[in-house]
Design a protein around this nucleic acid. Structure first.
Lengths: 337, 337
DNA sequence: TGAGATCTCTGCAACGATGCAGACATCATG
DNA sequence: CATGATGTCTGCATCGTTGCAGAGATCTCA
């Protein structure tokens, strides 16, 4: 199980451990003859450097952690892909973990026995942990937050402008002439910051169009999953005056809502237009395809990784809100065929 | 940046380093008085153990790596979730990496500078690397393969019975009275082992029904993505005698195919019935919902993790093919509303 | 009271690698 | 030829932790 060490190679090549290390790393000048002899020994023993030992000595691991609520939520899976790609471009690898939106799990990250010390930095998409808490437990490693809006400037934070994104989505529906625009996904409690920002954007769009919000058209959901979108849509259809358009706070909710509409025999977008947020690939292939607000995921990942690595290297600027662009992508769910 | 070490705590509490270590780990008996004193110092300094050092000493990291082709393919994302959960139950964390189906990337894992030495074990879902190659480069750490069928018994391997799964799916379509059953997803080249097994199952089902396979109804695809499923379906619809049912080698292909069918005005399942494999959540909410063969992903993950950990602990049996159950889930795409 | 058992606590060595300072040989230069 | 510069190579210390053996102190019981 235990592979050969520098010592084994050194013994075989009859040189010092240090020289073998130099050959492996190409550090100091080594004569051609010795280099060759060492190389033979390296090959014969199939030496692989013990990265743990190297890391201990160098004080860094070349690994960062990405912690998301749920890896099988397409948005996070797609984001994870981008993060892994961005990190690899800098020679880093990514440990992905999920918290299941469980506060305990998130807090574990900060606790004494956290494995956080194994990583050079942490990308965290928090669901229940607040910035306060994060700051209170002075963590050892640099952190960059994803997606959640943090007002105090304690941490680097990368996200889209949630208010503007929601406003754009709602304005698009209003621009189609819809007047009873519902919203699915509000979370009017402490940990629902992102949802609340989207609700604010929704209200702004209505206000700018001179419309008053109908509170019955704003449906809260505890999660952003397909099933809750489907259920929320059912409750909206049961209203005396059902909506003629729905703005869903993410694509999964929208896909669930569309499922309900189709089953109920409503035509999309003729009877009810639907728009989401996230631009997950699934929305391109759904029936109908889904109009959505697309965050630039590649940019989110790159900015987050770049910022984190700068923090790791100590060359980071002060914590900042980094706003990544988004754009509306119109598909069949609002535009017809 | 660098946190306090055992030495710092020891100095502050005026005890030996070893005693602090004992307190932290609860190893040897420590008098209540000393323990309290040490605890105070630990808290005051907010000591966190350096896991790298601990790992070096103990020769294990408590981390396993999961390497999949693409993390944003729902099947792999859902599998990753299960693997992370299963590993956590044993106190392990999971580093997730993706290869993009790139042979180079997969081979990097085996190379000299691979980070594989950082992990206690490796779960690999290979696309292009063969078992031969894996064995040739004698890897240092235990490996368990996922999904790919390996005939020589060099490695532990966890998968469903691909032939049976394909047979079941095809038989289901035939049982509906369909006679022109197409297949989307064959990969008649070296690295397409899994696809070929599914083709074999498809042929078996036809043969058992006394039907001859129409080679024009078997469409190859380089990947298992939605877009290729959509394109394959287009080519099938262009045939003089289009199929009345399609067996797709995974759900993404099926969702793409359904997209094409809907756009072309064909009714599902009336005109064309569709079945996939994988049971990704998306298929429950598509329109129509997707009939599929569901592998027991939780079981795959648990068996794979258990087997890997047994190998790590040296208590593993000889490499074995571990077959995990699957079952057909009938939804609207074959059963109507 | 004293020998041995028991309980706490400590120091040293080691995991496998790299940083550093210096040993030794070779070479160029005045 | 002496001197210093240069080029190779080596040994020691160290990263922060844990395994091991043993030192003292305390206790037990004949």
């Amino acid at each position: 199980m235990a592979g050969p060490t520098l010592r084994d190679v050194a013994k075989r090549a009859n040189v010092s451990i240090r020289t073998v290390s130099n050959v492996v790393n190409g550090y100091a000048p080594v004569s051609a003859e010795l280099r060759a002899r060492v190389q033979v020994a390296l090959d014969e023993l199939d030496y692989r450097p013990n990265l743990i030992a190297r890391n201990l000595k160098q004080g860094r691991t070349g690994m960062i952690a990405l912690v998301v609520p749920e890896l099988d939520v397409p948005y996070f899976a797609e984001l994870a892909r981008e993060v892994i790609t961005a990190a690899r471009a800098h020679g880093y690898v990514v440990m992905v973990d999920q918290t299941d939106g469980d506060g305990e799990r998130e807090r574990e990250l900060l606790g004494r026995d956290s494995r956080a010390t194994m990583f050079d930095g942490l990308l965290l998409s928090p669901l229940t942990v607040s910035a306060e808490e994060l700051r209170a437990r002075g963590n050892r490693i640099p952190i960059v937050l994803l997606g959640e809006h943090i007002f105090n400037g304690s941490f680097h934070h990368v996200a889209i402008d949630n208010v503007a994104a929601a406003r754009d989505a709602t304005a698009h529906l209003l621009g189609l002439g819809r007047r009873r625009v519902a919203a699915i996904g509000d979370q009017p409690y402490a940990t629902g910051e992102t949802a609340q920002l989207r609700t604010a954007g929704y209200r702004q769009a209505l206000a700018r169009a001179g419309l008053e919000a109908d509170e019955r058209l704003i449906v809260s959901t505890r999660h952003f999953h397909r099933r809750l979108g489907a259920e929320a849509m059912e409750s909206l259809l049961a209203l005396p005056e059902p909506p003629d358009a729905v703005f869903c706070y993410n694509d999964l909710l929208a896909l669930g809502a569309m499922r309900t509409l189709t089953r109920a025999g409503r035509r999309i977008p003729d009877d009810v237009a639907v728009v989401g947020i996230d631009d997950i690939e699934e929305g391109q292939y759904s029936t109908p395809s889904l109009t959505t607000v697309a965050p630039d995921k590649g940019e989110i990942a790159r900015r987050a990784v770049d910022t984190l690595l700068e923090s790791i290297n100590g060359s980071a600027a002060a914590p900042a809100e980094i706003v990544v662009p988004h754009r509306l992508i119109v598909r069949e769910s609002t535009a017809g065929e």
